[in-house]
Structures are given as C-alpha cells and as structure tokens.
Amino acid sequence: MSSSLPQQYQDLKSSFERRPCDLQRCGQLLDSLKLSLAEAGLLIPQGHHDLGDLTVARDILEIGAFWSIRSQDVPSFERYYAQLQTYYNDYATVLPPSSRRSPVIGLNLIRLLTQNRIADFHTELESLPPKELVGDDPFIKHPVNLERWLMEGSYSKVWNAREEAPAEEYKFFVDSLMGTIRNEIATCEESAYDSLPLKDAATLLFFPNRSDLLNFAQQRGWQIELTAEIIIFSRSVEEKAEIPKRKLIASSLTYARELEQIV
C-alpha cells in the first residue's frame, strides 16, 4: 500500500462523516484513492492480501457507494457495488464483518426495485443467507417488505412506508419508487374501472393537488369530463382472434412428414 493512502483514507473518513458531508471533497479523494487501490492491487483483489489492507479497501469502496447515492449517481453506485461483491463473497470468511454491509445490500435491492428489475431483485435476495432474510435487519427488511407489498398490490402500504426508510440514503430512491407505483396503479385503474371521480383518483394515486393529477392524466391519455368531475377510461377494444392459418398448415405438414417416417 502506498504511503499516501492511509492519510487520504483518514481524510475521506473525516470528510464523509462530517455533517453535512463534503460531497465534492469526498469525490476527489475517492478518485485518487481508487487509483492507489488499483496500484496496490486492491481494487479487484486476488489471492492473499494483508487483512488490514483489505478492510481499508472495503471501507473506501463502501464510502464510495454511499457517496454515489448522496450525489445521486446511480451508475456509479452500481460499479461500487459490483466491486464490493469480491469483499462480501470471496473474502467473507477471512474479513471481519462490516457494519455497512447490510445498508449497501439494502440500497442495491431498492435500486433494483425502482428500476423494476424484479428478477434481479430476487436473484440478489437469494444470495443472502436465509438468516438475514427472515431476520430483523431493518436495512434488508425494508426493501423486502416493499417488494412484497408491490407484488400483492398493497400500494398504500408502500406509500406509508416511504417515510420509514432506515437510512438517509434510502430516501433518494423514494421519489422514483413513487413514480413506479403511480404507473402501476394507473395501469390497474385503466383496466379495473370504467370511470372514476377526480377526487378519488387523486387519493388513489396519492396526488396532493388537482393540477398534478390533471398533468398525470394527460400524460397517460385519459379522458377527463371536467363538468362531471370524472375520468373515463377508454376500453381497449378486444381484437378479434384470427385463425393463424399458416401456422396451422405448417404444423399439420410437420405431423404428416413425421408420421410418414414412422409408418
């Protein structure tokens, strides 16, 4: 490990923990620290390293992950998360457990949820030990609950839980999550209702005022009867099923050919 690294690490730690944290300074420090880590072969470690070095490298990457969220840079968070995987999986047996591990994992879960990547969300969830899955770790429990409510359709619970985020960084995702929910609800309403009073639609979609709702309705192309104060959802006309002639002929020919071979 190069000589400047410990110094910079201390710097980063202090400027990260300062309230409010100095985002710009952290960013600069992280950049140079990443360079030093790469030189020391710790950015993507392989084989055996000094335990202290590994812990420091992990700390730096974790701070980097939080920093990316705070500076609202999701792709950068993804990169940090991918780099941390080595530390969380391959060195799990040698390194002391990190207190920031579950917040980072939880954040990643929320990220997947807001990007509507449910399959990845579950793959990620599966790689956690079952103890954590059922345990009371608030950082993990939060995204798990959110996902369950989303899947069930208990959108109001998701809405109510938005303030219960276990860490500051979680709130960053709340807005985009709410956007996802609104769109979900909107598609449900389109198929479940013939018409809906404006007032009720606002509550269902969690819009505090009317103009937001009207904007949203316009985006989705809903018909609004301002006099009757209702939204009318136009039915998508069910298309008449056509007989796929070509397909049927092709399969019949295949059967005939195969049968010919058998007989």
Binding site: S154, I185, A192, L204
Partner: peptide, 23 residues
Amino acid sequence: EDAEYIVGKAIRDGVIEGRVVHE
C-alpha cells in the same frame, strides 16, 4: 383501501374478470 388496490391489480393481471365500482 388495500383491498381496492389488490382487486385492481388482480383484474389487470387477468386473474379475474370484473370491474370495481368505486362510488
């Protein structure tokens, strides 16, 4: 409230055929 959302979702997902009459 939950029930309304859940039924709405079920209709959208094609689990049931039906309508919700909100009023």
